[in-house]
């Protein structure tokens, strides 16, 4: 079983497919859960404190806005953990954790930089595209098993 970073990291579709085809999806919820279940100082809603954007300096310099560094503190460790990645281009309507285009650019870049199997594709816009979309992901994930 491989750890597959899903992008958008909040994707219900990718999460479903990766699990269905026998692998573990890595997405925002994993990091958020860790924050929510770790004791510390109270900082609702997602228990990100000023320490997290500081930790985010590992992936983005200090002149990068705090919201990006805070998000990178969620994603950075997951990217490091990932064995593979599936990237859907242009998640233009994935909000919240994926709500910042600059973070998304940096995140996708980090995934491309990392020397891991990677599949990039677009959301389907028809039934026919749905078939190639699922086939591409299924085939990609099947090959991961062999690797």
């Amino acid at each position: 079983m491989a750890k597959v970073f899903i992008y958008p990291a909040t994707s219900l579709i990718l999460s479903t497919l990766v699990t269905r085809f026998g692998h573990q999806p890595l997405g925002s919820a994993i990091s958020i859960r860790e924050h929510i279940q770790t004791p510390g100082f109270d900082s609702p809603p997602i228990q990100i404190t000023s320490d997290d954007p500081q930790y985010g300096l590992k992936w983005a310099a200090v002149e990068v806005p705090s919201g990006i560094r805070g998000r990178m503190s969620l994603y950075g460790p997951l990217v490091e953990e990932a064995d593979a990645a599936i990237i859907i281009d242009e998640p233009d309507l994935a909000f919240g954790c994926m709500g910042c285009a600059r973070t998304n650019e940096l995140l996708a870049f980090m995934l491309r930089e990392k020397n891991i199997p990677r599949l990039e594709l677009n959301y389907p816009t028809s039934k026919e595209e749905g078939v190639t979309f699922v086939a591409a992901i299924k085939e990609f994930l099947k090959n991961l098993e062999r690797q």
């Binding site: 269905r20 078939v131 086939a135």
Partner: peptide
């Protein structure tokens, strides 16, 4: 994403 689910469902059945 739920708006696109029908395409995925179809893709799953076909594949």
């Amino acid at each position: 994403e739920m708006d696109l689910a029908r395409y995925i469902t179809y893709g799953l059945q076909e594949t």
